[in-house]
């Protein structure tokens, strides 16, 4: 594979890793697969792109507001939809999935209506690019890698070092038991959703420069992150990143070798194989996910 593609792998890894880290947080804290994270990333990115291209906002402002919006929408969906339905059904799984899918669908349609149904180009925060050994590295890519590593490191530190972080896992494992122990379940879940939303927003804003963003991008992004979690597992904070690297490598390599369409077949095949053979990913956790 040419060097340029390796850089793509790194970018895609970091992007998928950030989304997967969001999934990881919500899975740990609420035992839910927050499928709406991809659309949240899309929403933040589209908002930013729209504001920059239509209203002439400075890129940095658009990105920051976009991230805040993604985080806020994530919290809103937890407070207004997911949590009430979760409570009403006594924690049954299917209603929660449907609630999350409904949020996903609404975000897509809302973005389509507000920002238009045509692809918008993402605006780079850092426009410079560097040529190393014949390959072009954009400043945006460097930013993405830095943010990704920072986010993973930060979350790892937060999970270990802060009170809320330590409570996160207790809530996700057994919400009722956690409530009995006096853990503020609602707050912990909310923090998980807020952080996941923010991570998605950052990922979307930084990655949108790669190929633009449309209102339907969200679902694809969700699936990339989902796959990273499936491959990596939930055994450690870094597991989603390892999963993301593997997925990114595999996808880029298949596209390089066999063409665009192969990507989706391989994606599905990898998921299918992991489900059938190693359902808890590479880094398994002892606790039920």
């Amino acid at each position: 594979m040419p060097l340029q593609l390796w850089i793509s792998v790194v970018e895609l890894s970091c992007f998928a890793g950030l989304i997967a880290l969001g999934f990881f947080l919500v899975l740990r804290g609420a035992d839910l697969f927050m499928f709406a994270l991809g659309p949240l990333a899309m929403f933040g990115a589209m908002f930013g792109a729209y504001m920059v291209s239509r209203n002439g906002w400075p890129v940095a402002l658009a990105v920051v507001v976009g991230v805040v919006i993604a985080s806020g929408l994530s919290v809103a969906s937890e407070l207004l939809v997911v949590r009430p339905i979760h409570r009403r059904t006594g924690g049954e799984e299917n209603p929660s999935i449907v609630a999350i899918v409904a949020v996903l669908f609404l975000l897509e349609q809302l973005a389509g209506t507000l920002f238009g149904r045509r692809p918008l180009p993402g605006s780079a925060l850092w426009r410079d690019s560097f040529t190393v050994g014949g390959a072009v590295i954009s400043g945006q890519a460097i930013l993405l890698v830095a943010v990704c590593l920072l986010a993973f490191g930060g979350v790892a530190w937060w999970l270990r070092g802060s009170a809320t972080g330590r409570m996160l896992r207790a809530v996700g494992d057994n919400e009722r038991a956690a409530a009995i122990l006096g853990i503020p379940v609602a707050k912990v879940r909310m923090v998980a959703f807020a952080m996941a939303g923010a991570l998605a927003g950052i990922a979307g804003a930084l990655f949108a420069t790669k190929g633009g963003v449309t209102f339907t991008s969200g679902l694809q992004w969700t699936l990339v992150g989902f796959l990273a979690v499936i491959v990596g597992g939930l055994g450690s904070v870094w597991a989603p990143l390892v999963g993301a690297v593997i997925v990114a490598l595999l996808q880029t390599w298949t596209v390089y070798k066999f063409g665009q369409a192969m990507e989706d077949y391989v994606t599905f095949a990898v998921a299918f194989l992991f489900f059938a053979l190693r359902p808890k990913g590479i880094f398994q956790t002892k606790v039920r996910i």
Binding site: F33, D264, Y265, A271, F272, F275
Partner: peptide, 18 residues
């Protein structure tokens, strides 16, 4: 449920591409 939902969704995507 989430995993059945996820893998079937991936299949749906792959089918569309196919």
């Amino acid at each position: 449920g989430f995993y059945l939902a996820g893998v079937t969704l991936l299949f749906g995507v792959a089918f569309q591409v196919f």
